[in-house]
Every structure is written in structure tokens, then in C-alpha cells.
Design a protein around this nucleic acid. Sequence first.
DNA 1: AATGAATGAGCCTTCATTCAT
DNA 2: GATGAATGAAGGCTCATTCAT
Lengths: 222, 222, 222, 222
Amino acid sequence: MVVRERKSAAPEISEENTRDKILSAAGEVFAEQGFEGATIRAITERAGVNVAAVNYHFRDKAELYTRIVLDACSARAAWSDVMAEAPNSPQECLRSLIYHFLEYLLDPDRPAWKKRLMAREMANPTGALDELVDKNIRPFRNEFLMPTLRELTGDKLSRRQLSLIAISVMGQCHYFLLGQPITQRLHPDFKIGRAEIAEIAEHIARFSLAGIAELTRTARRS
Amino acid sequence: MVVRERKSAAPEISEENTRDKILSAAGEVFAEQGFEGATIRAITERAGVNVAAVNYHFRDKAELYTRIVLDACSARAAWSDVMAEAPNSPQECLRSLIYHFLEYLLDPDRPAWKKRLMAREMANPTGALDELVDKNIRPFRNEFLMPTLRELTGDKLSRRQLSLIAISVMGQCHYFLLGQPITQRLHPDFKIGRAEIAEIAEHIARFSLAGIAELTRTARRS
Amino acid sequence: MVVRERKSAAPEISEENTRDKILSAAGEVFAEQGFEGATIRAITERAGVNVAAVNYHFRDKAELYTRIVLDACSARAAWSDVMAEAPNSPQECLRSLIYHFLEYLLDPDRPAWKKRLMAREMANPTGALDELVDKNIRPFRNEFLMPTLRELTGDKLSRRQLSLIAISVMGQCHYFLLGQPITQRLHPDFKIGRAEIAEIAEHIARFSLAGIAELTRTARRS
Amino acid sequence: MVVRERKSAAPEISEENTRDKILSAAGEVFAEQGFEGATIRAITERAGVNVAAVNYHFRDKAELYTRIVLDACSARAAWSDVMAEAPNSPQECLRSLIYHFLEYLLDPDRPAWKKRLMAREMANPTGALDELVDKNIRPFRNEFLMPTLRELTGDKLSRRQLSLIAISVMGQCHYFLLGQPITQRLHPDFKIGRAEIAEIAEHIARFSLAGIAELTRTARRS
DNA sequence: AATGAATGAGCCTTCATTCAT
DNA sequence: GATGAATGAAGGCTCATTCAT
């Protein structure tokens, strides 16, 4: 379809090579259609390359998919860097954690298909999820969220209760990504931009801090 | 379309008719493989019936899928019936709502594939989600959850704030279904039985009531 | 779509490429079985190529059929070229027209299946007939036959009468193609070769010129 | 679809039985779609009967088709009856023959699908044509048309020439049936009712009588 | 006589992949 | 590195037919 003519002897720098063109196109298509629904032809056509190119550059359709999902789900930066300037108070710390976790999930600067793909992978794991959890989610929980929660609750709560609280916090955040098909239907005019992320983070933080405080208070009584 | 009455004198328990055999088999296959991944042949083979049977009893692969998803996602009873014995205090009412919503999502008596399928459809909508939201989710939110939240907060909060609270509540619940692939990886020994549903519901209720109270209190001050 | 150039040094005569193999085979099969009766498998098997080849080179079974029918029905050359050396007298002109029209329909050098296919399409239109009429039949009638008839009749006859005469002339010719199943049964030993075409054309010409003259004469009297 | 209730104990006379309903419906469907294109389901649905009824009353789809084609192609009455009042002059006789042959082919009182089916069978014989030719066409030609032509031409013409004349006459007539797809495209507003049949017959008669006379005259000279 | 359910064969099409260049 | 052509394996669906009632 799209014929490209090489006119200059010197290879043009701005011209994406076939491999990259495939990666971009495949990300969108996989995000829209899922692994089974996407076809190699749809990908190569959108990329403007030959059908055989996928099998040439990547071994497989599956191989290409894995490569793309892993890239889409990898964190921007290590949590420790993001959290560097975290304030002293555990309340502020949780607020910051929630904000950055939300931003990790919903960052409007990231191409939409990456978020879509991550949501897809979370609901329907194909193997990339293990790596995603190991590299991003579990460190966030174990090294940042849980310590903060412990600090907030003293040693009043059992591990089980702490876990439930962690789930409550992360669940509220994740829901904005995973539950999007539902929330979009319930609130059709609810858009998520940079401002909304801040608003939502503030809401979740206050909501959760109150819940944590309450659970801690009642635990003290028992 | 196809109405069937069993009039045979001897009640044959183990004998299913073709239509039902297809429904059972298709549910599992769709849950395992998704709509695109499932093949009619896989379904009919597992059901032990002819390939053409799907086309005869249901019009389409898509029609069969829709029928199954809607059935898998439909609430056992109308929310109004479930809520009949709801107590007077709005706090208890919210507690009850959360419990029943969680039970709707996680009911251990339901075959596992139904929950899997519901999660799949929510993360990866195919058209059946619209009906699912219209019939189950939206009524729950608009006719039960929101009124209770309004009662709990008086008229102190804006619609936006109420919506965020509703999302926080539903998000915590939904996360136990949608986020299962993640929670299973984070807490490998976390099983969800009848007892856990009660425990989780109680946790979410207390956590959320505190959050609601706090947001209401701070709103009053302004 | 698919442009192909043979650049190989050795002119391989017997080797056809896949596309051409399909065209040959499909022509015969369609002529024998009709569009509905023919199966892609029958075509590809006879062509000795893969089933998917039809879909690759032509989009559809329907597309392939259309392509073949249009090719089978297209005149060897434009009528204007054929008529270049037409003589001056309108009588001779009509004679020539009839001959060339008959030759277009019955040309013994054309593979028999092309004629069969043309007859089939004329009796059982599938959409290709529209184009066939527009490109071949209507120009012949409007630009060549009708002017000649007008010249032969002066302005003595109404449009309706001229149309009927045109139908009489074309009907006699067409009948040798369309009515072949009947004429073969009535005259089993009636073969149509190059000589017969000339004989038939001469017959139709003399028969028709007399009819035209008679109709013109009686019209003059009124 | 169409549920029919038997209310009266006595079988109603006006109610077509299943067999007849199939015959009516099948005629139309076969005429529209051809043998291969028609489906048993289309027929039984139009007839308002069960799918299995065709195989029950007729053995086959093929059997049903044959039955219908034979019926559609059978002549209304024997030619000898139709020709009873034929006038003495051979000219008038030919005129009458042409009219009745045209009427046989185009009779507006006959359901349109019968004509369509006959045309289909003539262009694309499936076996019923043999009987059609034997019973209707050949007798017309041999016992009525040829004798009249012989009378008109004396013994001036060879058998071959007489045959060609017969073909010219019958071809003009047949073309109004077989060539309808073409004539409709060339003359979109050309309808064939009872009046047109008379007009066409008169035209063909005068046209042909002149042709015959001319061929006879020139033959005499040689 | 008539029917709803069920069947197996087969059709068109599409897909991921490979081959020759 | 990159491509157009070609392939075999299914896949969804439809069809004529038969079975049990």
C-alpha cells in the first residue's frame, strides 16, 4: 500500500526503521484488539511494512506481544527515585505514595494504548504480569506502602488487617485503571487528565487516612 | 426462541439436552480462552455435540457468548429483594450494601468460570457489558448506594465528591474481582470463601464509613 | 493490484504463474457449474494451487468470477476498429455489422467455456452483465446498429419500430448463443465453425434487409 | 413462523396442503435463485412449513426441482388445438403461429416465475429441457412451422436454408424470453403485456414474411 | 402427515507463517 | 534487511438431510 522511496544515499536519521514501526503499530493494535483479536496483517498495514516483517524481526506473533507488553508495563523510574523528596509525616508520605501510584497507573503523558494494554494484562495475564508485579507492584507495596501503613498504625493491627488496608488503598487506585470500562459507562463525562489525577489522589488519601485512623482507634480499644 | 418442556415421566437428572450441554461447555471455554480465543469446535467437542448445534440453538458464536456472559453476570436476585431486610441506620445499610455487592461479585457457590468471565468482560468489554451495567451495576449505584451515601453525608458534599466516594466504595469491592491476578501474586495464600467475604465486607464498611465521616466533617467546616 | 513482470532470460512457455493458473481453471469451472455451483476448492485443485491463493490474488470468489466473466465477454477489439473498413452502402454496412457481432458471440477461436460463460451470464445475470452491456452491447446498438438502421429506413419509422427491428436483428444473432441448448436438440449435427458463421451472417443479413425494406415500404404508404 | 391452527374437525377445502404450499414457494425461489442458489430453508420458510417437509414429500431438493421445472415448461394445450382455427393462407398461418408461439413463451397470465424458470432451464439445461423440447418445441417446429415455411417457399430452398429461416423466426421469438436480461438493460421501460405480444407478433410476422419472400425470390433466380 | 432437533459434510475465508528473491 | 507470493491449517457458518416423535 504505502510505497516508500529511498531517495538519498545517506540513511535518514528521522526515518524509523521497520522494527520500530512495527513496535509502535503493534502496541496500538494489541491494546485495541487483544492478542487473539489482533492480526499480523492489521499490524503490518498500520506500520506500513511487509507482512513478513513481523516474523522476520520477531520470531512470532507471541514474541512480539510479549516484548510489547513488557515494555508497556515497565515503570518509568524506580520508586525510590520518585519518593526521594517524600516529606516526613507519614500522612504526607501516604498522600505522596497514592499520588505517585496513581500517576504510574494513569499518567496522561503515556500513550493511551500502554495503559489499556496494562489493564488488559492485569485482568487477563499472559505471563508478562509476573514481571510487572515483581518489578513494580510488589516493591511499591512492600518497601513503601506497608512501612508507611505500619508507621500510621503503630503496632496496633495484625498483618492481616494491614494487608486489607493496603488492598483498600491500592484497590481504590487500581480501580481507576481496571474499572474504566465500568466507570466510563456510569460517568460518561469523567475524563482523567493531570488535574483529575491530583484531585483523585487527594480524595483517596483523605478517605483512606480516615479509614486507617478509625481502624487503628478501634483496634486500640480491643 | 427455543422453548422446551420436559414432560417425561422419569426425571432424568444426569441427562442434559443439547442446548444446556452447550451452555455449560461454552461457559468454561469462554472463561478460559476469551471470546476470540475460544473456538466453536472446542466448545462443541467439550459438550459432546455437533458443531452445527451452536448455530442451531444460538444464532452465532457472538450470540452464544452474550447469552452466557449475561447469565454469568446477572445477580441472583433483584437488589430490591436483597435489600428488603435492610436495617434503619444508614451505617448498617451501607454495611449491608457492601456485603451483598461483594457477595454478588465473589459468591463462592457460583462456578469459578462465571467469575472469571465477569472479570474478563469488565476488563475487556464486548457489548454485553452495556447490558450488565444497565441491569446490575447502575441500579445498585443509583438506587441504593447513592441514596445511602446522601443520607450519610447530609447535603454537605457536592455531586462530584459523592461520586468519588461511590467510586471508592465500589472500587474496593470490584478490586477483589478485577485485581485478582494481582492480589493472588501479592498474597498467594489469600483464598476467598464465604467467611472471607464477610470479613472483607466488614473491613470495607468500617474503612469507608470512617472515610465518609471524615469527608463530611471537613466539608462542614468550610 | 498485482503487477507482474517476467524478466527471466529463458522464456518459459509452459510455466504459468499462480494467478494465471487460477484464471484458466476458474473459467472452466464457472462455465461448467455456474457461480453458485462452483467451489473454490474445485477451482484451486484443477489449477494445482493452494485454496488460499484465490483469496490472495482476487479478493473473493465473487471478485474472481466478475473478473473472469468480464474478460470472457469482452470484445477482442473495439467496435470502432472492427468497423473501420466498413463499406459505404448501408446494406453492406449492416451485413458487416451482423457478421462481426456474430463473430463476437461465436468466435470458434475462443475457448468454448468463454462462450458458455457468456451465455450463462446473459441468462442468469450476476452483476457482471451490467458492465458487459455497457461496454459491448449498448455501444454496438446505439453507435453502430441504430445509425445504420436509420440510414436504411430514412425517417419513415417511429423509434419504437426501429427498436423492434434492432431487436429482430440482434435476437437472431443472440439466439445462436443463448438458444444453443435448444438448437442443439433440434439440429444435433449443427456445428458452428468459421464457415458457418459466415453462412449464418449472410442469411441473417439478407433475411433482415428484406424485412427492413418491407417495413420501410409499407410505412411510406401510410 | 406462521402458525396455523386447525379449528374445524372437517378439513377445510380452501386450505392448501403442505405439498402444494411447497410447490408454490419453491417455484418462486428456484426462479429467483436458481437450483444451487435456492435453499430448502428459504423455500420452506416462504411456504410456512417445516424444513423437513421437502424431504418428506419429495425425496430430494433435486427431485422437487425437477418436478417444478417440468410443470413450469409444459405447454398449456396441444399446438393442434391452438391452431385449430388457423386460416388458409400460409401468410396468415405463419402470423398465427408466431403469435401463439410468442404467447406460449410470454403469456402474461402465467406466473412470472414460470417464465423465468423456463428461460433459466433453456440457458442452463438440467434435464428437464429434453422433455420440454420433445413435447413443445420440436412439434411446433416440425409439424407446424416447417410445413408452413415449405408452403411459403415452394420447393425453391434447400433444407439447410429452410432450417435457417426457421431459426430466424424462432430466434426472434425466443429472444424476448431468453434475452430479457439484455433487453431490459437496453430498453428499461419495455414492458411485455398482452398488447405488446400482439404488437411484437405482428412485427415479427411482417419482418419474417418479407425475409422469406426475398430468400425465395433470389433462390428462384439461381 | 408433519415437525423440531440434531447431524456431518463442506464452503468461503482468514490467519500466521515460510519461501524465494 | 526486506519483500511479495504462496501455503496449510483452521475457523465460523450454512446446507441438505435424517431421526425421534
